[in-house]
Design a protein around this nucleic acid. Structure first.
Length: 420
RNA sequence: GUGGGUGUAGCUCAGUUGGCAGAGCGCCAGGUUGUGGUCCUGGAUGUCGAGGGUUCAAGUCCCUUCACUCACCCCA
């Protein structure tokens, strides 16, 4: 084997790959019902878009981006997340000049240069949604509800919703300073001490027990919220409760991107190995301005398609993907004349809306019939010299082994009736 | 960036104190010259990840390296 997929990437193969398409569709379906419009943005962007949007101090920007110069010397980066691109597109095309909020959804690949492990790959897929230009707790709640509907429609039962707020530009600076004071007094390693100065909230999210043990008395953002943030957060929580969406308050939930304000949330699942998030998001009221646009308070989320897939696997929802129907009808030609006629007949069947395949490669009857069996087809069409002479074809029901001769001129209609 | 585990057939994996390269599944063919899915019989497929070393002899022991994988940091 001479070539392999690049490190940290993988291939989706049939029949499993079909399930991935279905997962994407299921996660997006609630968004369509809620009036979100589909947006597709380039897979690569100006490096500065992510540096300024995602945050210069995050590890994503400092060491996890696929950044490269193009032939003209521009610095481009494969997108590590979707939100910055969507905000850029909205600003570039003045979508926010119309009625607000602008509601958009996307589905596509993201790239991060990380050491791969279960649920974490260098190339991964997200379905995302963004609602730009409105500050309304109902919008935050709507997005969260839509995500839970998507997960539920896939049959997932063990997705938990963690909810927090990060405050805004009025109350966060004071909280941040209080947290820094507290953290500076702890016994921490060098990297973590450095993080206290650039992104102290991230320290709360450290998984190491020796770190968590020291954080039990850490100041929490919920205790430092201004009145407006507190009221906003209470309203989001109240709307979720009324919508019947279960959530857990997690005062230490902090997300990895710098642009979040107020509402933040994460959907977690226990079946993904050490990675637990199947999706997450929050409000990013300052991002538009960071990117040179007008104030555009917004909220959004992204759900990991491959992680959702792992969660479904952990819950046993994928079933047996070996037993699935590939086509409805399968052609078994015997000899060159029959092969030419079968080729046309299969095309006619497809034109009539039936899925159909045939034996290729000059297989004998036995091998071709095996192919028919493996295709999952309900009917095999057997066509040999005797049948050609009679202008007919043998239609075999592969479940009952019952076989009938049907005139070639009528076989498309007959099969349409049989497989409806 | 750091640490652990694993690399043997298309897939999942056995392979003992170093002694002829294996099984199951899958694939191909035949049993059945125009009939699949069951059954029976037969067959093909290997740089034992790669390179070096020890040895009469290495899949097995040693060194190096690469890949995969899981975990840490970080993150969806």
């Amino acid at each position: 084997m001479s070539f392999q997929a690049p490190k940290g990437t993988f291939d989706w193969l049939p029949p499993r790959s079909e399930r991935v398409l279905a997962v994407r569709e299921a996660l997006a379906a609630p968004l369509r019902l809620a009036g979100y419009g589909y947006i597709e943005t380039p897979v690569f962007e100006d490096t500065q878009l992510f540096a300024r949007g995602v945050g210069e101090s995050t590890d994503i920007v400092t060491k996890e981006m696929y950044t490269f110069p193009d032939k003209a010397g521009r610095s481009l980066t494969l997108r590590p997340e979707g939100t910055a691109s969507v905000v850029r597109a909205v600003l570039q095309h003045n979508l926010h000049a119309g009625q607000l909020p602008v509601k958009l959804w996307y589905s596509g690949s993201q790239f991060r240069y990380e050491r791969a492990q279960k649920g974490r790959y260098r190339h991964f897929w997200q379905v995302g949604a963004e609602a730009l230009g409105a500050e309304d707790p109902a919008l935050d709640a709507e997005l969260i509800v839509l995500a839970t509907r998507g997960f539920a429609s896939l049959g997932l039962k063990n997705v938990r919703l963690l909810l927090n707020t990060l405050g805004d530009k009025n109350c966060r600076p004071a909280y941040r300073a209080a947290l820094q004071d507290f953290l500076r007094g702890l016994d921490l390693d060098e990297d973590t001490r450095a993080r206290i100065e650039i992104n102290p909230l991230r320290v709360l999210d450290d998984k190491r027990p020796e770190v968590q043990a020291q954080l039990s008395d850490a100041p929490l953002v919920v205790d430092h919220l201004c009145e407006a943030c507190k009221a906003y957060h209470d309203e989001v929580r109240s709307l979720l409760r009324e919508a019947g969406v279960a959530f857990e308050d997690d005062p230490k939930l902090v997300r990895g991107l710098d642009y979040y304000t107020r509402t933040t949330f994460e959907f977690v699942h226990g079946g993904l190995g050490s990675q637990s998030a199947v999706g997450g998001g929050g409000r990013y009221d300052g991002l538009s301005e960071m990117l040179g646009g007008p104030p555009l308070p917004s909220v959004g989320w992204a759900l990991g398609v491959d992680r959702t897939f792992l969660a479904m696997e952990a819950e046993g929802l994928l079933g047996d993907d070996a037993a699935h129907e590939r086509v409805q009808v399968y052609g078994v030609p015997l000899g060159d004349d029959a092969r030419r006629r079968m080729f046309l007949l299969i095309d006619e069947l497809r034109a009539a809306g039936l899925s159909a395949d045939m034996a290729f490669g000059g297989k004998g009857l036995k091998g071709a019939m095996k192919g028919a069996g493996r295709s999952g087809a309900a009917f095999a069409l057997i066509l040999g010299e005797r049948d050609l002479a009679a202008e007919a074809v043998q239609v075999k029901d592969l479940a009952t082994a019952e076989q009938t001769e049907v005139p070639l001129a009528k076989v498309v209609d007959v099969l349409k009736g049989k497989v409806q």
